[in-house]
Structures are given as structure tokens and as C-alpha cells.
Nucleic acid binder design. Structure first.
Lengths: 336, 336
DNA sequence: CTGAAAGCGCTTACAG
DNA sequence: CTGAAAGCGCTTACAG
């Protein structure tokens, strides 16, 4: 659009070579006289010169840009994680491409390709679970950090929450409230690690001495919408007795569940206790505010960025892979 | 990280010049033999060659990248708008940089500068309201579309909602419910156009014959948090009589208001009717689901992208500026 | 239909 | 402390 100044123009004005201007731009002040530095500084400020980052990237093979690829950007979990990522990256001088795979493995692959073509320096991925091999390959050529969702049997850095701990907190809490039956409601896990982990945690804990007196059941949902959830909730209500409880495996599911309870006129906690994974913004404004397992989403995002950024510059020598696991917390409210 | 193939390598393999490969990459199939085209196609597919977009951008001064700068990315309104933007851009082959100004005018300016340095082709901006002149200048050199928030007295394309219509819908609705007093709760508007428009709409309508029997009051909040909102709500309750109603000017404010009502044990709609701007995901799960003025957020995003993209290629000849205004709708629920 | 060559705006050994 | 020159991977008149 506009004919911007180039390094050549500044060089001419200052009366030095472009090499010197370039050194200045890259902070190599030690290799120029104080006087030169000041003259350059002044001219750049006066002229409002801005280096062209596209050219810098092409030449230096460092774009100072990171691709963040989320399976579904438009859920509160992703949003909070993004906030953490964005803040760290931005404070380290990195710009992020935020990409939404829309829960499609194919789109996830396309996005990764697009991002490599854009010469990003590294990736933070919340994977759809459909590209394990592809992402493993990617991680051989680019710095990659997985966030929220791990890939089994592989050596890729990851940051996620302690799902066993989360489910344990929920079950112990419900137990302490005298529950006699607990249903765990989850989407069919597919190849998505947190879902698998939560389900496994639930079924494992259900077997343990502590919980043998409790009637534990797992309900898997293929489709997550109002109708499907209402159907399950309806069935539950008519089959169970005593003091039942429900654990929902993520925020979206919790929302549908609350709607279903409302539609079926079922009261929480009078008719059924409820604990939801994820502390959504609406949890507090329900008739009975929702007890939740809160993930440190913001910290998860920060941790992911903090893990990736050193990989972007460091010699690929330090190839120690780490899985960071952050603890969830239980926030007790009136639903239990 | 990896030594990628360059156009030169493909040219060598196919046995043509890089110019021909480049023409192929740019879809100029008419200027090469069918046979050449097929050979190139095959080799590229075989080798998994991907053109380097950074180099393409540098040479062609088209980066196929758009900067989206939102005053506050982390509110539901922005999210939905983004979804609309993202979908259109992505389907037109544009990648977007999503930037969060965190409600800081200074950060907004910094981001715009960063994005120009990244050679984006254009901007979609939901402005903080603190950089009117700066953005006006920007719009002289880059294609810019404002979304949600306009800049007064300027010729920049924009897409926003009909705020007068929204407030009218809310007031007529409350009127039809027999309200005798309406309070409009809004953040202090500053230089943010939708806030100004909604406030103006309210005060103007309040004067009209239709509403003269209704006691209309405007309440401005400097700070938007639980305590501040609770304080206002508390005052209101003790001063008013008959059949009062409240209109909240955005989704965030609605959330705090609902919390305040809860804390003060005030029932909706028994003690006070309520209409909120923005149809948030939690509106339906309240004890009394919230009547809202819903903005066509998704369509607003789409419209903004659809307006910007033609500006990216077309000669700057067609300089007709347009302000697209989309209609809001009232969704009646039990809070009124 | 195709190629040689210049150049987009930088960075980086290399030489002094 | 500084500059001349090559080159990052493409695109694009220009010439044939």
C-alpha cells in the first residue's frame, strides 16, 4: 500500500552501510561506535522506520511467530489456555497464529501445513487426536508442545492437567456427601487423552475399597447436544435410587446437563448432586451454583509457552522431553 | 529446522526454469504446455514440496494474511465475531493473526505496528476507542474494516449492530409487560461507539410520548466487577416502586448483575424484570432464563471479512465507504 | 510456451 | 568499528 522506508534508505540518510543498520536493528551495539549508534537511533526514530519482518524472516529463518492449533478454539477451556499462551509469547516478542481445527483431523493437518509454509518457529497443539503419527513426524522437524491432550507412546513435550487427581477429588467429595450412586458422563473418548484418562480414573477408582459401596456407572455420549444429553439424564433419573450424583466430564457437557435438569424439572442438589469438570463463568449463577473441578487453564497455557520458547533458540542438543502435569482443584458450591 | 525443498530443486527435477514452476504455483496454467503442467504437478506431489510463503510475501507484497485486532478477545461477543471472520478468511485462503489489545489503547497501537511489520494485507479492528486518529491514518495506507465499534466522523468501512433498534426492542418489550420504571445499566461509554449509541438511544426514547409514563433512569458504571454492580443493584432496589425493570448493556454486565441479584436475594422477574444485551450461552440456564437482545455476532464477523477481502486485491479505485448495520433481535424468555 | 535475470528487504560471513 | 557482496526463496517484466 504505502512505499515504506527500507534499510537502504536509512543507511543512506545516516551515511553508513546497510550492514551497520542491520547490526543496529539486531542489537549488536558492541560492534559500532557510540556515535554511529546514536545517529542511527535518531534517524530511525525521526523517520518512523520499521524493519520489514517478512524480509528478516526469509533471511534469518526465524520468524518470531508461533502456531497455536486448537481442536476447538471456541470453548472456554481453549480460551483460557490461549490467554496464558498469548501473554507469555507476547512478552517474549513472539506473535501467535491462533488456528481452529474445528474438531476435524483433516483440517488440523491442513493448518499445520499452512503454518509450516508460513515459516512459524514452533507449534503449540491441542490435538484432535486424529493425527498422532503426523504430529510425531512434525515434532522431529519443529519444536512442538502439546497442550491439554497428549499423544501416547511418544516423546513430545506436553502440558496437561492431572485427570486422575481431578476425578479422585470429585469422587471423594461426593463420597463425603453420602452419595450412594455416581454416574460419570463423558463424550465417547475416541483418541483424546484427557477423556480416556478421566474415564480410566473413574472406572479404576470405582473398584477401590473406598468406593465399593457406591454404585458407579459410566455413560458415554456419541453426540453432545441438548437432546442427547436430555435423553441420558431422563433415563438416569428413573433407574436410580437413594442419593445419586453426576459428574460431567467437561464444561460443555455440564451446560447441556444443566439445561436437561431444568427441562426435566430435576432439582440440584435435592434430587441429584452434580460436579462438573471445568469452572465455567456461569457456574456461580445457577440456582444451585455448581461444584466444579477447576483446571488451572491459564497456567497450563503459560506453561506450554514457557516450555516452547526455549526450544525455539536453544541448540537442539537438550532433547529432554518433559510432560508437565498441573493439579486441578475442587471448588465446592451448592450443587453438592 | 529441516532443509526444505526450494523452487530451484523442483525446477531442476522437472527440467524447467524456476519461472515456470512459479507460474505453476500461481495457477498460470495457460502459459505452459499441458505436458509441462502435469510433470510439475507430479513432481511437486511426489516430493511434497511446499512453497515458502515468507519468500512469496516478500516478493509479491501480498501475504494473504489479515490482522484482527480486538479490544478484548476474551468476551463471548468477540469470540463469535471471530468465528465468523475466521470462517470467511479461511475459505478465501487468508490466514488471520488474532490479536488481543486487552482494552489498552497503547497495546492496540503496538499491535497495529507489529502487524504492519509482518506485512499483513489488511486489518479488521474492534477498537479500544483510544486510537481514532491513528486508525484513521492507518486506513489511508491499508484496507481497514471496523467491527462492532465505529470511529466517528471518518470514512472507514464498518460493520456493526443497530443499537437504536436493540434498545427500542428492549423498551417496547418492557413497556408491553407493564413496566413502570426502567433502569439502563451501562459502563461509562468513553469513546466506544456502541456504548454511546445505546445510551443515546435510551435517553432519546425515554423522552418520547410512548414512554413518558415510564420512569427511565440511566446508571453508568466506571468499574465492572461484582462489588460495583452489586452496589448499584442494591441502591436501585430500595429506591424504586411498582413494576421495575433493568436493561444491561452487555453480556459481561449481565453476568455480574445476575450474580448481584442472587446475592441480594432479589428474584427475576418477580421483583424486577431484566433484559440483557447479548445472548450468552448461560442465558437459558438461569432460574428464570434471560430475555436478551441478541446480536447477529457470527454474521457481523462474516460481513466484516466479506467487506475486507475484496479491498485486498481490487485497485484502490472503488473508494466507496460503507457502514453495514445489522439488526438485533429480541429473544423473549422468562426474565420478563 | 519458456528462460535469464533482476530484485523484494533484509542478514551474515568475510575482509579490512 | 565498518563495508562490499552474496544470498534467503520466490515473482515478474522482458525477450524470444
Amino acid at each position: 500500500m504505502k512505499s515504506k522506508l527500507a534499510i537502504r534508505d536509512i543507511a543512506q540518510m545516516v551515511g553508513v552501510s546497510t550492514a551497520t543498520i542491520s547490526r543496529y536493528l539486531n542489537g549488536k551495539y558492541h560492534s559500532m561506535s557510540n556515535e554511529t549508534r546514536l545517529r542511527i537511533e535518531k534517524t530511525i526514530a525521526q523517520m518512523g522506520y520499521q524493519p520489514n519482518n517478512v524480509a528478516r524472516s526469509l533471511r534469518s529463518t526465524q520468524s518470531k511467530t508461533i502456531a497455536v492449533i486448537m481442536a476447538d478454539i471456541f470453548n472456554p477451556y481453549s480460551m483460557d489456555v490461549l490467554k496464558g499462551i498469548e501473554e507469555i509469547c507476547s512478552s517474549c516478542g513472539y506473535t501467535i497464529f491462533i488456528c481452529d481445527a474445528r474438531d476435524s483431523g483433516e483440517r488440523e493437518r491442513t493448518l499445520i501445513e499452512e503454518m509450516t509454509a508460513k515459516c512459524v518457529d514452533g507449534f503449540i497443539i491441542n490435538t484432535t487426536g486424529e493425527n498422532d503419527d503426523y504430529i510425531m513426524g512434525l515434532s522431529l522437524e519443529y519444536p512442538v508442545v502439546l497442550v491439554g491432550r497428549k499423544i501416547q507412546n511418544t516423546r513430545i513435550n506436553s502440558v496437561s492437567v492431572d485427570n486422575l487427581r481431578g476425578i479422585t477429588l470429585a469422587m471423594e467429595h461426593l463420597c463425603s456427601k453420602g452419595c450412594t450412586a455416581i454416574t460419570f458422563l463423558s463424550p465417547t473418548p475416541g483418541n483424546i487423552s484427557p477423556r480416556l484418562e478421566r474415564i480410566k480414573a473413574f472406572t479404576t477408582l470405582a473398584q477401590q475399597a473406598e468406593f465399593t459401596t457406591i454404585d458407579c456407572r459410566l455413560e458415554l455420549l456419541t453426540q453432545i447436544d441438548d437432546a442427547a444429553v436430555a435423553h441420558i439424564i431422563h433415563q438416569l433419573g428413573t433407574q436410580r435410587t437413594a442419593r445419586p450424583a453426576l459428574i460431567t466430564s467437561n464444561g460443555k457437557l455440564s451446560l447441556h446437563t444443566v439445561k436437561a435438569f431444568k427441562a426435566l424439572n430435576r432439582r440440584v442438589p435435592e434430587d441429584i448432586l452434580m460436579v462438573g469438570f471445568d469452572d465455567t463463568d456461569w457456574a456461580q449463577i445457577l440456582r444451585s451454583p455448581l461444584t466444579v473441578i477447576a483446571q488451572p487453564t491459564y497456567e497450563i497455557g503459560q506453561a506450554a509457552a514457557n516450555k516452547l520458547i526455549p526450544m525455539l533458540t536453544k541448540e537442539k542438543g537438550l532433547k529432554e522431553t518433559t510432560d508437565t502435569v498441573l493439579p486441578p482443584t475442587l471448588i465446592e458450591r451448592e450443587s453438592t
